[in-house]
Design a protein around this nucleic acid. Structure first.
Lengths: 323, 323
DNA sequence: CTGAAAGCGCTTACAG
DNA sequence: CTGAAAGCGCTTACAG
């Protein structure tokens, strides 16, 4: 059913139908109600493409989850289709949270995953085809980030998550980060207040900003508190469950095991607990653990997400005014 | 830049531009290349709304994550905006997998979460406004499922995940389920082969099909193997981490603890390991555990997902031909 | 082979 | 207050 058809039934023009849909003033109550009734009765919905084409703005956001592994192509090639599924569990809390926030603002969000540099065009394409008005990029390291900037137009609005702010770039981009450094620093301080001296860490991917900053915060805290910073108490993980498992096994097999371990994300904590259960050690008696668990994660995530929410419409509007 | 403008630059009509974009035959190579070159040079992308309106089909799928808790409204009302974020971690593997599959087929997928019955209109609206061509619904129990069917048109194509197949309904729906019953049955059999007799379980939500079927499979296996089915070895969980934690604590505090526990999903396994680590018990020496872990999950998921992929375009096409 | 024209379903100045 | 008309940016019969 089109607005034309509906209008004919009611006995008005489609202009009138359109006006009540778009809440124009100066429509007599009676007309408005007649139209509204018919809309409901005939279950009429305006075609979104037509509306968009005619110039009505509805904000839809693209969420691009980057996980570029060009170098590991054999991995992708060998496995069959089923197994190509990549386990990006640790983006899940962010993705859920983002969709939630966006939905609350009645934004539409369209999600896409990108595994190779050669798929990066999807972002630019989504913008240029006017599918999205803004976009959020998560999962990129600095190299990927630069590649993204290359492909897109400078005036596209983008929010980068977990990427170092780049003041030099002209792009209409914002950078969303939690205070990874301080969070990690505080974890160590908290351990120290509890009386721990031998503190270990399972790091995340150090080429991700969050991984690096958490590591820096950890090290600086250890040093500033005059605690021992020992290489065998640090396991270089990659934010994945398996590295949490192996990291914990390794830390617990050293001669002097740490009494407390800071684990850089939730996913690795899962693996760590598995390792601990296999060894039959007691938490927190034998070993204390702090991770970025879901609750902490969310509460740490929320401010930047709020930032995104606030900034996105603001910047979109700004962009509109400027152009 | 519009196709009109681009055409003018090249010195052809926009019809021609459109034809090369849409791969019409009978275009002289020279013309085609000239156009292609200009497209690249001027970075021209056709407007997706205009294309859609003109009748070009591009498949976009809606993924609706249902988590309806009408009864717990105070929960939602009291907390501030940040905390409204719902933790739907256990949908994450499915969501990622789905987006992955869809992306591989070059489908667009637009994701939305629904927390109340009153938001159910979003699904119908997405269809009626022609935003989506098909949709996947996950997270509904049988009641929610019926409500969804009420709101949508019978000819909309929908795939329901984890909902009992309803042969009576006329809707153009498919039902995607893994063999929960058999999977659970097999777990018990496997435990038994290992020599376990005292087998416990932490169930999922029993109003979800997967929760119920896994429970059924478990019970039937226990009975058919003449093993003891004891109420104190069963904890009624809800698929959330906390219930895994509490469930395991409870199971391990009974007089005769089970030697093996089947835990109904990955998320609860996490909590269970935490409980075990707090008690300082050893896995698998003191207690054996099988959950639906990620690897199993994915491999169990894949066939139905493949089903979705195969069925979706097929049914879409069918629908088209019929109408 | 290719251009001019109609049409997709809306919205919004323009008149009245 | 409200209808007729133009326009959004494409695609695709229709002619030639």
């Amino acid at each position: 059913m089109t607005s034309e058809e509906l209008a004919k039934i009611i006995g008005v023009s489609r202009s009138t139908v359109s006006r009540v849909i778009n809440n124009y003033p100066d429509i007599p109550l009676e007309t408005r109600e007649k139209v509204l009734e018919a809309i409901k009765k005939y279950n009429y919905y305006p075609n979104s493409s037509a509306r968009k084409l005619a110039g009505v703005k509805d904000t839809t956001l693209g969420l691009f989850i980057l996980d570029i592994k060009d170098m590991e192509q054999p991995h992708h090639v060998i496995l069959n289709d089923e197994n190509l599924l990549y386990d990006n569990t640790f983006f899940a809390p962010f993705i859920s949270a983002f969709i939630d926030h966006a939905n609350k603002k009645l934004f539409y969000v369209f999600v896409s995953t990108i595994y190779k540099t050669s798929e990066l065009w999807k972002i630019a394409s989504a913008f240029n085809e006017k599918r999205i008005d803004g976009s959020v990029i998560i999962g990129s390291n600095h190299i990927d980030y630069l590649k993204v900037l290359e492909t897109i137009n400078k005036d596209n609005f983008i929010a980068f998550i977990d990427v170092e702010e780049d003041k030099s770039n002209i792009a209409n981009a914002i950078y969303v980060n939690i205070n990874n450094y301080k969070a990690a620093f505080d974890v160590v301080k908290y351990f120290a207040e509890l009386g721990h001296k031998d503190i270990g860490m399972i790091t995340g991917n150090l080429d991700k900003l969050s991984g690096k900053k958490r590591f820096d915060g950890f090290k600086d805290a250890i040093l500033s508190l005059n605690l021992p910073l020992r290489e065998e108490w640090i396991y270089y993980g990659d934010f994945m469950e398996m590295s949490g498992y192996e990291g914990m096994k390794k830390l617990l097999s050293s001669i002097n095991t740490p009494t407390a371990v800071f684990i850089c994300n939730d996913t690795m904590v899962i693996g760590a607990y598995r390792a601990i259960a296999e060894l039959g050690l007691k938490v927190p008696d034998d070993i204390s653990i702090i991770g970025f668990d879901n609750a902490q994660y969310s509460s740490l995530m929320s401010p930047p997400l709020t930032t995104v929410n606030v900034s996105l419409p603001k910047l979109l509007k700004l962009q509109q005014i400027c152009s």
